[in-house]
Amino acid sequence: MRKRLIPKSVLTPVVKFAYNLFRYALLAGVSYLAIFPIIKMLSASLTESEAFYNSGTNFIPPVATFQNFIHSMQYFKFFDYAKVTGLITITCTICTVFVSSLVGYGIGRYKFKGRNLVYACVLFTIIMPIQTAQLPLTYYYRWFDLFGIGKIIGLFTGEAVTINILHSLARFILPAVLGVGLRAGIFIFLFQSFFSGMPKDLEEAAKIDGCNPFKIYWKVMIPNIIPVLVTVTLLSIIYYWNDSLIVDMAKLDMGSALMPQVESLVEMNIGASQMDLMQRKVEYYAILITSVTPLILVFMFGQKYFVECMDRSGSKG
């Protein structure tokens, strides 16, 4: 109760009650609208296909069954796909979050020469639809040549040295390390706006104590923006896990990623009979629910810290 929008003295109990009622009604309505499809999806995945065919979905399935989950697991190799996607997600998220916080810190706290240009470049990476650069990038990774080193070697040996990293994990980690990973621009943008909003005296006090710039960033600034850090990490995990566009373009050696496989199930079903279709539908929902379960677990685990951190940030003043 650090602050209120309406001062206490004004609030007679009646007004307060009305305000609470209004708030609950509004939030309940909005929440209902937001999660309605999710509830429907969940209940459909728990319904038998025959019941689904006859009555559609209700909020509570007539007979709850895990049949769809069990059956869909037989042909959908969830754990194989999840392993690949999980590996990409974890490594890339760590890299992306760390690097984008560094870059965001640089842009947010230092008025260096060319800052505006770099900032414009960051904005540009957010704005440009990623599909545009995907094709040239594919060829770049196919005949990969680290910053032209291979070409320089090629001057002596007669043939430029290139490696094919198109189907390896490096194809994802490299952009993540260099701050142009999936939606990294948005994260840089978020970080810079929160870093630039921090009071100057913190930094100056640390400088007087003899901290070098990196130490200031690591020891002073990062602990102060933990809510943003947690948010960004969560978002990055969600984006990487749910991404189907980029991982789809690279057929990985390790096996396929999750979401492209889920999407390919949709196309498989065109032309099936009505009854068959119902069966596949409910199973498809079961697969969808299974696919996002890890994210829900991460969110539930992170939620505690997430909310706590959001609250702690305020008390700093």
Partner: peptide
């Protein structure tokens, strides 16, 4: 400042 944004510049 430039050092902090260096990874991004290279990547960009």
């Amino acid at each position: 400042g430039l050092l902090f944004v260096l990874p991004f510049i290279i990547g960009f």
